[in-house]
Nucleic acid binder design. Structure first.
Length: 219
DNA sequence: CGTATTTGACCGGCGC
DNA sequence: GCGCCGGTCAAATACG
């Protein structure tokens, strides 16, 4: 990978859900632990080192995940993790049902369950595939190579930090993401993507080389 | 002046 | 049915 796509994020856990046109397969959703920080980067360690002013996050795992257009097959969802990102063969999946996540954090921190489906043409309901991961980060909105426009912000119950809603600015691309801080550990950012991009990431600046490389790799 | 963000209104699902 | 809650809309505002 070129220097431009240096990995600066440190996703701790990821959550996948498969695409299912009937019922939300909550039971098939869950976090699993990443293998112990394979993306260690001295520029991006613990967030409370205030000297670490590296807020300009680069092409990252976020891009890798989102550009692979989300998992499509049902479980085991970790099949869809980019193998060089998650060497899950050697890691323990550690599944957490959503309900249990809520319990652990003693609040409904992600609240995804209410946003399961959307209506399509009056009758058909389709739930876009989603996946999320949490990252140790000072900045809320991680630069993933796509351009996003904020369209809402909401305080979620029993949390102090608001949740922000973003939509991809590309025409006809309906990908959304939301960003929030983990209530129990505000150093953690939870980023959730929903939908698949119908286009390549478009950073205004340079770096098209790394991007096409990534696209070719994942698409 | 065009575009992005803010922010309260609105809406729909769900539990009671 | 009603109220709560999360998600979205959109008018007003900020921004550059």
């Amino acid at each position: 990978m070129g220097s431009k796509s240096q990995l600066l994020l440190n996703p701790q856990q990821a959550l996948f859900e498969d695409q299912d046109h009937q019922t939300p397969p909550i039971s098939q959703m869950g976090f699993f632990n990443f293998p112990s920080n394979p993306f260690e980067n001295p520029n991006f360690s613990t967030s409370n080192n205030n000297n670490n002013s590296d807020t300009n996050l680069n092409l990252s795992e976020t891009l890798l995940f989102s550009s692979m257009n989300l998992p499509l097959k049902p479980s085991p969802f970790y099949e869809f993790a980019p193998p060089h990102l998650l060497s899950l063969q050697t890691s323990t999946p550690n599944l957490w049902p959503w309900g249990e996540i809520g319990k652990r954090s003693n609040e409904n921190q992600l609240g995804i369950s209410t946003m399961k489906m959307k209506k399509i043409k009056g009758r058909r309901r389709v739930r876009e595939p989603r996946f999320s991961f949490k990252t140790l980060s000072d900045v809320d909105v991680l630069d993933d190579g796509y351009k996003w426009r904020k369209y809402g912000q909401k305080v979620v119950k029993n949390t102090q930090h608001p949740r922000s809603y973003y939509r991809c600015t590309q025409d006809h691309c309906r990908v959304k993401k939301r960003v929030e801080r983990l209530a129990e550990d505000p150093r953690m950012v939870i980023t959730t993507y929903e939908g698949r991009h119908v286009h390549s990431p478009s950073h205004d600046s340079e770096d098209s080389e790394a991007q096409t490389h990534l696209n070719n790799f994942f698409w």
